[in-house]
Design a binder for these strands. Structure first.
Lengths: 232, 232
DNA sequence: GTCTATATGTTGATAGAC
DNA sequence: GTCTATCAACATATAGAC
């Protein structure tokens, strides 16, 4: 049911379709060409619109970027969830090319119904590895994440909910894996859900500073110490 | 030897003294009143100078903020290192009041000579707990950390070196503790040095968004899973 | 629905008086 | 060394033409 959040302006089929197209293209552009405190005008030009034209669809710069981050999660979910093997996450430009999906497919990763521990680990790591190929998106995410600390920021709610969903998935997966004896019994799922999120976010900062820093390896190391056996 | 890095403009005793005084006051102001994308003018007024007066000591806004972060580390080091019990880290405003110290005291926490595992853990946690009382500094740190991803940013080198020092301390402490059988033998010190840094930085983001998130508890949980016995 | 043009505001930085 | 005054550069948002 992708109807609830997408209502903004005209909200007619045509309008929201264009909106989605803009977001897809923006994602692609930022992923490839990077984000460096980009202005609305720059981004507008990049997606083939004027500033005014772009702001016809988004009320403000901050809302635009928030929408981009939402769309990004949507795309990542569709790519790295559900199927054991993603269709074709080849290279960097895996975020555009038409409609990636109103397919309700990927809600496993961040939903409460919950992926299994293995699914969550694999999906989480896949997204993180993918991030290494879209530096601009990582930078955009981190930048907005800081700004969104302000409750008045349009992305405040987005980051709150996103974090909650992510951690909820971890809590369930960890608890289940614990019950199955695969995760140490002395780990508090709620606490380590936060730790996973923190490691992921924190490694992004390190990686932006030092591209050699291996984000996925660090997260993987955390999985390793929490699990009782060596899987895979 | 605090002489090497402090050379900038006039660099006469009087000049650098005033510089330090400005930084101390700026720290105090930001810690108490918060940082919200503060402009140079605002900060200048807060420290009792005009914009021009302030920029007499710092070439640019970015260099000013970089210097503030440097000073902050210096103060934290002096406060939460060396003595088993800090003098009086009471409340929030523990960062000003005269000269906190050219005292060469605290170089343990981030130096290669290295604190012991317990010292590092206690100091690290103390700094993190202290951070909860200076939200403005946490926000400033995170904001500049993102911007400093750009190699051209004045703080780029600062964050690189800071990260290296911090992780080096962790690598040594973890390795030593491992040799003593206090830390699991299957943890890679270098890898987990990154993980500690990531958890710390990542928890700051969560805490800025949700002040109820317990930064120290998360880091402490990581210590707990890595150690073989329950210390405390 | 999209563009051009503009209003409005702010910022960082500089020049020059005192 | 510090202040006042000012600049030039942008950026966002809006208004109005097409």
């Amino acid at each position: 049911m992708p109807a609830s959040e997408d209502r903004r302006r005209g909200s007619y089929p045509k309008g929201i379709a264009k909106r989605e197209e803009i977001l897809s293209r923006a994602l692609d552009v930022i992923a490839r060409e990077g984000y460096a405190g980009a202005s609305v005008k720059e981004l507008a030009a990049a997606v083939g619109l004027s500033q005014g034209g772009l702001l016809h669809y988004f009320d403000s710069k901050e809302e635009l970027f928030t929408a981009i981050l939402r769309k990004r999660d949507e795309v990542d979910l569709a790519l790295f969830d559900g199927p054991g093997e993603p269709a074709a996450p080849s290279g960097a430009g895996a975020a555009s090319s038409g409609d990636t999906g109103d397919s309700d497919a990927g809600t496993v990763l961040f939903s409460t119904t919950g992926p299994t521990f293995d699914e969550l680990r694999d999906g989480f790591l896949a997204v993180i590895r993918h991030n290494s190929e879209v530096p601009g998106l990582v930078q955009l995410f981190s930048r907005v994440a800081v700004d969104a600390a302000d409750p008045a920021h349009p992305a405040h709610g987005f980051f709150l909910e996103r974090g909650e969903r992510l951690r909820e998935a971890f809590v369930h997966a960890l608890a289940d894996a614990q019950a199955a004896g695969r995760v140490r019994s002395d780990v508090d799922p709620a606490m380590f859900a936060r730790v996973y999120q923190a490691v992921s976010d924190g490694m992004q900062l390190q990686w932006m500073l030092e591209p050699d820093a291996d984000m996925a390896a660090a997260v993987d190391a955390l999985f390793a110490v929490l699990t009782t056996e060596e899987s895979s």
